[in-house]
């Protein structure tokens, strides 16, 4: 079974360690501007939201790509961009409902999360529990259990 990258907004402190490691994996430099994991900060840091590609089963970016530059890595389920095949048309960036695939003008191709081949560097870097890489059939269940605990009137 594949694993899924999951994000827990409440646990994110906005430290950007994930962006540092992600960018290193992508471009070989610590450069948050090139990270495909992005932290959006609200209320001056009271709320920090990590976002990246969640690897749709039916990936619209892949469907619309006119040159089949996006393919599925069978080992991880990740939708991966071939920099050689990508022509930089950006149609995928329009198709993705989450804005999780982006065009990089420096390289002339689009870039997105590829789960680092099954060992996501952002997860390794995260100092809290905001990012985790879990079996895909368990996504959401932790949160469900916490909600159930609260509904039962117990402390989560």
């Amino acid at each position: 079974m594949h694993k899924a990258l999951v994000m827990e907004v409440d646990a994110c402190t906005g430290c950007h360690q994930c962006e540092l490691m992600c960018s290193y994996g992508k471009v070989g430099a610590f450069n948050p501007a090139k990270s495909v994991m992005d932290i959006t900060i609200y209320d001056g840091g009271a709320i920090n939201v990590p976002s990246t590609c969640t690897q749709c089963q039916e990936a619209w970016c892949m469907v619309v790509c006119p040159v089949q530059a996006i393919t599925v890595n069978p080992a991880t389920g990740a939708k991966e961009v071939s920099a050689e095949a990508c022509v930089g048309c950006k149609v995928c960036t329009i198709a993705c409902p989450f804005g999780a695939i982006n065009y990089d003008p420096d390289s002339g191709v689009v870039t997105k999360c590829d789960l680092c081949g099954g060992e996501p560097m952002c997860v390794e870097a995260c100092p809290t529990t905001a990012l985790a890489y879990v079996a895909e059939d368990s996504t959401g269940y932790d949160k469900m259990r916490r909600s159930a605990t609260l509904a039962a009137g117990l402390e989560a």
């Binding site: 402190t13 906005g14 430290c15 950007h16 360690q17 540092l20 001056g44 840091g45 009271a46 709320i47 920090n48 100092p127 809290t128």
Partner: peptide, 9 residues
């Protein structure tokens, strides 16, 4: 809430 500076665990 608490909050982190850049790169701070």
């Amino acid at each position: 809430s608490n909050h982190a500076c850049f790169g701070c665990p």
